[in-house]
Design a protein around this nucleic acid. Sequence first.
DNA 1: AACAGTAATGTCAGATCCTGTCATCACCTA
DNA 2: TAGGTGATGACAGGATCTGACATTACTGTT
Lengths: 188, 188
Amino acid sequence: MSRWEPNAKGRLERAALELFANGGFEQTTVAEIAERASLTERTFFRYFGDKREVLFSGADRLQTLLIDEVAIAPSSATAIGAVAGALEVAATLLQENRQFAQQRRNAITTNNELLERELIKLASLAVAMAEALRARGVKEPIASLTAEAGIAIFKVAFERWTDESNKRDFPELIRDSLGELRKLTALD
Amino acid sequence: MSRWEPNAKGRLERAALELFANGGFEQTTVAEIAERASLTERTFFRYFGDKREVLFSGADRLQTLLIDEVAIAPSSATAIGAVAGALEVAATLLQENRQFAQQRRNAITTNNELLERELIKLASLAVAMAEALRARGVKEPIASLTAEAGIAIFKVAFERWTDESNKRDFPELIRDSLGELRKLTALD
DNA sequence: AACAGTAATGTCAGATCCTGTCATCACCTA
DNA sequence: TAGGTGATGACAGGATCTGACATTACTGTT
């Protein structure tokens, strides 16, 4: 079953998060991460396309979850309703690892390169959700706009959820943000 | 006035765009760009923080323009109205350099690293516009949501404008996208 | 038990990106 | 003519990332 020490990828991710929390992303070298995980630099780059990617391996699963949820939403649901529902499901899951989410977030918000990677993951998510909406029969540009609006809602809600002083329920924050968006775009 | 060949920064930008159009972003080395501009690699990095930044020096001016426009919008304007108005002004200016915009866009859409940089510039823009809205008395989270919605509108409209088969007026596309967003968020 | 096969990992060389440091150049001013 | 200054060049070097090949630790077959 396990030829070498098991879970090399997980060990690298853990080592990276710990070192980033200490010395920051830029100051931490890939060689240090690999050494802490008892591996070599070359092996790191076999698991992760670049140094930043070590913090984003979960993004793919999140994307799969969201497009699945959009796909199985009741056919009576509106486009924005299907997206918001999917976001609530995702929020429920993310809520179970709040501490990890916060550590990861600390690393990302203090480094522009990591922020860039986060943003492109969200953009990719928007594209995938737009595709899932088109599969439900939603036309362009409604599909893309709805997906982008969904991302905006998620970003704002996530920001509020990870705020240390805030103990509110994540899915509830999603619902609230959608309500706010509806208000501000309403015609006078 | 001009000790060496003038406009070193502009020469580097032009050389980079030309080389990117030919061989692509990754295949082009900074040394090649510098050589084409009759400068050295070291000088390139004095003007641009990294290789990607050579395509984004105009982003700062765009941001300044947008927050100024938001600031001077009539006090009767709603938050989303002020943002949309600013976007229309920016669109009018960008419209004068459609070919440059398309070349630049070609480079960016075919390279993930450049896309990342584009996205973070837009995110920075959203943050700045939210700040400009708060200066108008708009409260959170309305300010942030409005700014994010504005970026979503801009992205969708820009996409449609640069579409080769599309000859529509850019500011008009902005207005249309806002209309679509209003429709899709409207309660049933 | 011996052997070959395989997937994960290691080793090494090297290209490219990016930075620090100091030298040099072209022009300005007193 | 003698600095003074800002832009550029030259050079060394660290870090990221890749390609090529070797090695390791197990698996399966005979």
